[in-house]
Amino acid sequence: MRKLIIFVLACICAVLLYFTTVSAEKAFRSEWKLPRAPARQQAEYRLVLITQELETPFWDRVGDSAKREAAKAGAGLEVWGSYGNDPEEFLKKLEIAIDAKVDGIIVQGLDSDAFKELTKYKAAFFGIPVITVANDVPMGDSLRKTYVGSNQYLAGRMIAGQLLEDMGPSGTVLLLGDSGNAFYQRQRLSGIRDALGAYPGIRTEYEETRNTREQVIAATQDLMNRFPDAEAFVAVNASLAGAMVQEIGRRARVEPYDIYTFDDSPDALSLFQDGKLDGMIEQSPEAMGRLGVDLLLDWLKGDQIPLDSGGYYTDIRIRKADEAP
């Protein structure tokens, strides 16, 4: 009896001790350190890439390659920007970047007075170098150091060339552009017009519209009503392409029309893969990001002063519908 009692007591004791030890271990073991990352050597240069269209395939590629390049060079780089077409937010980011005194700004050019005001006066006032990427704003307006991206005029010409090839030397071409009439859009347009100007059989009609879905649809309808014999459409501003193609598709079959655009909008690639586009200008976003960072760092380090104010052009090529996978 006595042995049994002692045994039971010992068991209880062991169980209690076990649980106490386990809970004590749980309570005291876990690391107390705040997850304070080792004080990294602060990056020598803080760069910001600002775009109007965050998280679109095109800009993601630009941003990723820029980040890789910056990391390689030991510089800090963050991608800021606005979602969708939100110039106000975009400009705010730009102003913050300037006020935050970053060492360099790579920005998607916005052809607006506010943008020019910021780059020309404020950035210059703080001595912050600005490089435009993908979309340019002329140096005289923005005091940008240089431009990295596609040669938009050449891109226009290439579209026109493709168009001629597909359509032949006569017909009506409808051009749809954004009413913001940005610098790059003007360049594309002049490229197209210059190329087509040599062919008297080709008639071009240009229409500008505000960049909202309803407006684009209305403009497209209007154009198609006025020029029912049109054979080709070019969305000079790629962001209009989606709504435009949709409207064309609503009115008639899309296939007979030759439709062209550029690849710097979220819609363009999916439209192209669906076979609704006949041709698309493919740019080199990776090269833009990489080159932009390289040039900016070169300038900051004084390796290359001044930068070529004319701009550094990245590769463009045309993708035709029959190339589509």
Binding site: A39, A43, A100, V102
Partner: peptide, 13 residues
């Protein structure tokens, strides 16, 4: 810290 290094510099500036 490692996460907010960049932002904090901007903040201070």
């Amino acid at each position: 810290n490692g996460e907010n290094d960049f932002a904090l510099t901007n903040y201070a500036n």
